[in-house]
Every structure is written in C-alpha cells, then in structure tokens.
Design a protein around this nucleic acid. Structure first.
Length: 499
RNA sequence: GGGCCGUUAGCUCAGCCAGGUAGAGCAGGGGCCUUUUAAGCCCUUGGCCGCAGGUUCAAAUCCUGCACGGCUCACCA
C-alpha cells in the first residue's frame, strides 16, 4: 500500500507509542458512559463523578501544560481536559506527540465544568484504543449561533461514495440518513405486522424473471449448469403464497434491474411488496396512504416534509384521479379518444409532443405522457388510477372497460413511489396476457414478461382475489431525508472501479 | 450512449481566458503557552497539476484522445 507523508508520520507515532510500552490496538475498552450519558449525568448532579468515555479524537487544543480536546462517539461529543499534573509528564507528552485527530481513545476522569461552562472530563487516565493511520478528511467546525459550520470537510461526491466509511465518519448528518432509513424500514414492518401480514423471504436467484418490465442481471450456477436471473421483482413468488393459503404476505428486499442509473434509479434497490387476499386496489389505496403517513409520523414525528424546497403533507386523504384525467389536465389530450397506437401517436405529434414511433398504445401513454408530462409535477401525494391494460400484464381488467385495469401508482415529490393493482387471478386470462406480451414486444426485447408456466400452474389451483402493492423504499427515504439523489440514501452505491 | 462541466498538497480551493521556477487556508512537523473550543503567536515540510500523446525554445495553462465523476438528455412502468 502506498502511504502518504501524513500516513508515514502517523506510522512513526505508532512505533513510538509501542516503544513507550503502549498497546495502540488493545482488545478491550472500559467505557462507563457515552458522551451523551456523561453530560446527562453531570446535569443530574454528577459534578465530580468519575466516568470513562471512549471515542474518536475530534479536536485538540494544546495550551502548553494543559490540553483541551473533544472526543466523539455515536451519541455526540464531550470535551476532555488533559493536565500534566494529573496525567504525569510521560503520558502527557505521549499524548502531545503521538495522538492525532481520528484516533480512538479512552479517557477516565471526573466530570467538571470549565470556566466557559462546558461540561468536561478532567482526565486522570488515558489510553489509546485504536490508532488511526490515515487522517480523516474532516474540516474544522465552528459553532455559529445554533448552527455548526464546517470548513473544508470532504465534499467530493465521488470520494464520499468510494470511501463511504470516511464520509460517515466525518459527517454526522450522513449517519443520520441511515438511521432514518433503518427506522423507516422498522416502522413499515411494524405497520404490516400489526395488520396480520406475514413477512416472508422468496428467491433472489430466479430461473425466470418477472413481475416488472426491466432487463435482468444474469448469473450462473456452476454445479447445476443453469443460468439464473437476479430478481427484478418478488411479485410472482409472493402471489404463489396466496395460493398456498397465506392471506397476507410481504417482503422487503433487494431487487436488481440492469438499466440506466439516474437520480432515482440504482441497479439494486430496496422494494417493499405486499399482497392481501380479499382487498382490491381501492382498499390498497387506503392502506398506502395510511402506511406512508403513519410511518412518517413514527420516523419523523410529522407528516409534513420538505423536499427540494417544497412543503409536502403526507397526511391522508391524497388527491386521487384517473390516469386519463391527469393526462388530460397536463396535456389536453384525452387518450381514450385515440384507441390505437397509431391514432395516439398522430395526436401527440399534432400536439407537438415528441414521441418515439413504434411503441404500443400503453407505452405511449405511460412513457410520453405520464412520465414526461404528468409525473414531474406531482409534488403533493397523488394517486393515479386505472391504467392501460397492455402495460399491466399482471393486473385485473376493469369489469366495465376491458382496455383498462384496476391499477394505481402513487407519486410524491415528482417521483413514482408505489405501484399497485387488483391482482389478476384468472389463470387462463393470465396465460393469455403472457402470450400477448410475446406479440407486443420484439423477440429480443428482454423487458417483455417471459411466460412463467409454473406461475400459471399455481394459479390453476385457485388464487383468492387480492390486492398487491410495491413501494420503492429508497425513494421514500429520499423524501424523508430531503435528498435529491438515490445514491445519498444507499450506503455503498455502485461505481466503476478506478484504474 | 449524447451534450455540458469537473479532476491541482491529506481536505477545501486559487492559478488556466492572455504559456515563462506551482500558491492559500485547514490538516501535518518544530517552538512558546495550565481554561481552550476554527485557540493564539513564530517558524516550517508537503505536489507524476487525473492519464497518454501533440503544438511550442518553454505546457497546470493551448490542442487531441482516454479514464473517472457530476449534472442533463436518452434509456428505465
């Protein structure tokens, strides 16, 4: 490993510590209080209480024979005061010469308050817990009023993602994103568990991919000599479980789509899917609104969030309108007036809306009208419902309109966050849909749903009518944390390897 | 994949337009300082200027290609 000058200097300090008889990587620590607990203990009348705190050295101010420093652990920061007459010359000098910002240390001493009023540990015993050989790229911080201003901290986005550990170490607010993420997932679990849903785990390696329109990642099982796909969705397995007698199931897990990367797309992302027997898409709309608002209240303490400068209220009821109404509102085009792909394409052209030729009717509606014209403007929570049949091969047709299915999508902050339908449970109709997909898509189009005969077979045994729901967890966390890139809410986003 | 922008010290950035010995702040090193908190004061080390070519007496700077990244468009229910 190539070392920088700074790293070589720290290596020398490490050696010097060893020469002095210190163990720079001892196996155990003896913490009695976190920084926050120590401060709370002082405030509860703990003046003079002896505590042992641990954490990273976050700042060092040497004043000759006394030194102030801050030690940071996950709970926060606490100041320590090192004085030569309490520590002895040898330890004090070792600290001055060989301890650096970023080192993990353990400090034992009595709680006191300094002249300026800060609660401080007056250290009588100091240990190195783990010497940091590389300097963490944090800038200095200054308290300005009640805000903390940081200078020269790591801001290069590429470096932040490539060395996320360093990003996390120097940015408490980045750590907070992932706490919110964890609480969000926990709150979703609790919400569903309380309503009788069973959490299950279904295959990630699948012999046939399905449940969404996306290109899969392909892998190979050597012993079986079998190509497998990383799932693009859990849908077809979860619905098999309804055949098996479970009435309410859900899964929170990683899906993989071999598609482009964008601010709201990552090749692997986390999806919640649930399926509930005897619910239709209207009941699922209610559940969706209730779940998102309940989770927000639990995680953030409010249903009102700020996203990219917009104030958004997640409390029900959300605006609900049909996809047809939304498109009419945004473009002036009533697509039901143009019932063929060709007629609709001409109408778009007349309206001056650019569109790729050769798409199906449903794709024109979905891609050119919904995604481009409608979706970016749906800032407040909105449910659009009743979607074209040909882009919804797993959804049940509307009883009075065979060109549309009972499907809805929910949008917040200009992003699709959920997709749901009254699930198709007629095996013969389902088989027909798979065959239609084969006709509509070119043979080489990997996005077509391949025929999944086993899924149809499962349905042949009888699947209760049910409502299904899928939600992008990453996007929900983006909303909760006001991040405009999905990579900010994924701990280790994928990057190309550096040369 | 296309367009635009970026890549200079450990970090944050100047310098590039108008070619002439590579700079600042913080971090680091040495010194003074026993109540500081971006501590202060004095001194100071540190660079394949992303990579490879080209133009030129001379390239961080101009040109070309490449790599990586950001934004954006395309793609992606």
């Amino acid at each position: 490993m190539e070392l920088s000058d700074l790293e070589r200097q720290r290596l020398e300090k490490l050696q010097r510590l060893r020469d002095r008889g210190w163990d720079p990587y001892p196996p155990r620590a003896e913490r009695t209080h976190t920084a926050a607990q120590a401060i709370a203990a002082y405030e509860a009348g703990g003046e003079g209480l002896e505590v042992t705190i641990t954490g990273r050295l976050r700042s060092i101010r040497v004043m000759g024979k006394a030194t102030f420093a801050h030690v940071e652990d996950e709970s926060g920061k606490i100041q320590i005061l090192l004085r030569v007459n309490l520590l002895g010359e040898e330890v004090y000098e070792a600290f001055e010469r060989d301890f650096d910002l970023g080192d993990f240390v353990e400090a034992k001493g009595r709680l006191m308050r300094t002249r300026t009023g800060e609660i401080t540990v007056e250290v009588t015993r100091l240990r190195m817990l783990a010497k940091a050989l590389s300097p963490l790229p944090w800038g200095k911080e200054q308290q300005v009023g009640d805000r903390v201003v940081r200078y020269s901290a790591l801001t290069d986005v590429e470096e932040r993602y490539r060395q996320r550990y360093a990003d996390l170490a120097v940015h408490p607010e980045v750590r907070e994103i992932f706490r919110i993420r964890a609480r969000t997932v926990a709150a979703i679990r609790q919400f569903l568990d309380e309503r009788g849903f069973l959490e299950v785990e279904t295959p990630i390696l699948q012999p046939i991919y399905g449940g969404a329109a996306a290109r899969p990642f392909v892998t190979h099982h050597n012993q079986l000599n079998q190509d497998l796909y990383l799932r693009i969705s859990d849908e077809l397995y979860l619905k098999r479980l309804l055949v098996g007698g479970f009435e309410r199931v859900y899964e929170i897990g990683r899906d993989f789509r071999n598609e482009g990367v964008s601010f709201k797309h990552n090749p692997e992302f986390t999806m919640l899917e649930f399926y509930a027997a005897y619910l239709d898409y209207r009941a699922v709309m209610d559940l969706c609104e209730e779940m998102v608002s309940t989770v927000a209240r639990q995680v953030l303490g409010t249903t009102v969030i700020t996203y990219e400068g917009h104030t958004i209220d997640l409390a029900p009821p959300w605006r609900r309108l049909t996809l047809r109404e939304a498109i009419l509102e945004a473009s002036g085009i009533d697509y039901t007036q143009y019932p063929t792909a060709d007629a609709l394409f001409q109408a778009l052209r007349r309206a001056g809306i650019p569109a790729e030729p050769g798409q199906t009717w449903g794709k024109l509606i979905d891609k050119e009208l919904l995604s481009r014209l409608v979706e970016p403007n749906l800032l407040q929570p909105t449910i659009l419902y009743d979607y074209p049949r040909d882009i919804s091969p797993l959804a049940k047709a509307k009883p009075d309109d065979p060109t549309h299915v009972e499907r809805f999508e929910a949008f917040i902050g200009g992003m699709e966050i959920a997709n749901a339908f009254s699930e198709l449970n007629d095996p013969l109709d389902q088989e027909q849909r798979f065959l239609e997909m084969r006709q509509l898509y070119k043979a080489e189009d990997e996005e077509a749903h391949p025929m999944d005969e086993d899924y149809v077979r499962a349905m042949m045994y009888g699947m209760p009518p049910n409502g299904g729901f899928g939600m992008g967890i990453d996007r929900l966390v983006m909303l909760f944390t006001d991040r405009s890139s999905i990579r900010e809410v994924i701990l280790f986003p994928h990057l190309r390897p550096r040369e």
